[in-house]
């Protein structure tokens, strides 16, 4: 099956909103048809064909965006099925409201990736910006399902208000990692900057490296053998190997006690 390919003609002159450019909407359409699709450049309507050279592909095939750019926003926004591969970096809001399918970014992603994501897989080979897996602006709950796998680092407020799903980060996370987390599982192999988990209500934040200090609103609940860590590891190895620690033994900090304290931060014992 031949992939549809969009090849960026030149470095974008402004920010391009790629909403609607999805394998499910473009698959099986002719090159002319795809080229006529409207996207927005700095808010103004532009034909997709003016910005990208289009090679059509079969329905159901992957969509390839060649030589991505940090100025391509909303890649894979609202995607429900199929594969969208970006051969390079992505801009902001990548995988916003993703519901299914696979979004593969082979470079860095900007801010607010996977905001309001409900399902599917988002893979970022480089670093992710701030607010990864957080809520859509104004919403009370963030990511509600699916898996995000980041091979590099993540920025500040990783998983803010996240409610369900799994985020795996092989590198480090920025400040306020797991802030206001409602539920779900957040794994950061490289540890995080500053105090983790402010306002965390439930859910698990697993850090591969303990922070310099734990926030005062977390209670050290001692070292425990958590058999579910083994299950998680087995599940996560298939997605992003070496992120979940290989020992089920972890030091458990319960919190955030300022918000009910039903959540936990796990650090190596």
């Amino acid at each position: 099956m031949s992939a549809m390919t969009l090849t960026l003609r030149a470095a974008p002159a402004g920010r391009i909103d790629m909403s609607g450019v999805l394998p499910e909407t473009l698959g099986g359409r002719t090159a002319g048809d795809i080229a006529a699709q409207t996207v927005r450049l700095d808010g103004n309507p532009v034909a997709l064909g003016d910005l990208f050279a289009v090679t059509p592909g079969e329905a159901g095939a992957a969509l390839l965006i060649r030589a991505g750019s940090g100025r391509l926003d909303c890649l894979g926004k609202g995607m429900t099925a199929g594969t969208l591969r970006v051969e390079g970096p992505a801009g902001h809001y990548a995988g916003q409201g993703l519901r299914g399918g696979e979004l593969l970014i082979e470079g860095d992603a900007g801010d607010c990736a996977a905001n309001g994501m409900q399902g599917g897989l988002l893979r970022i080979a480089g670093n992710a910006g701030d607010w990864l897996g957080a809520a859509l602006i104004g919403d009370r709950a963030g990511m509600g399902g699916g898996v995000v796998a980041v091979a590099g680092d993540a920025g500040d407020r990783l998983g803010d208000r996240m409610r369900r799903g799994l985020i795996l980060v092989r590198g480090k996370a920025g400040a306020a990692c797991g802030a206001r987390l409602l539920a779900g599982t957040l794994v950061v192999a490289g540890g995080c900057a500053g105090a983790p988990g402010p306002g965390l209500r439930r859910g698990s934040l697993i850090l591969g490296r303990a922070p310099a200090t734990m926030p005062a609103t977390y209670n050290d609940a001692g070292v425990a053998d958590l058999s579910w860590l083994g299950l998680l590891r087995r599940h996560a190895e298939a997605i992003l190997p070496g992120v979940v620690p290989d020992s089920p033994r972890a030091r458990r900090h319960m919190g955030d006690l300022a918000c009910g304290g039903k959540g936990e931060i796990l650090v190596p014992a």
Partner: peptide, 15 residues
């Protein structure tokens, strides 16, 4: 407006 972000997201009007 602050209470209903969904009302805004669902009905954008471009310049």
């Amino acid at each position: 407006r602050a209470l209903l972000p969904e009302d805004h997201r669902a009905d954008p009007v471009p310049a």
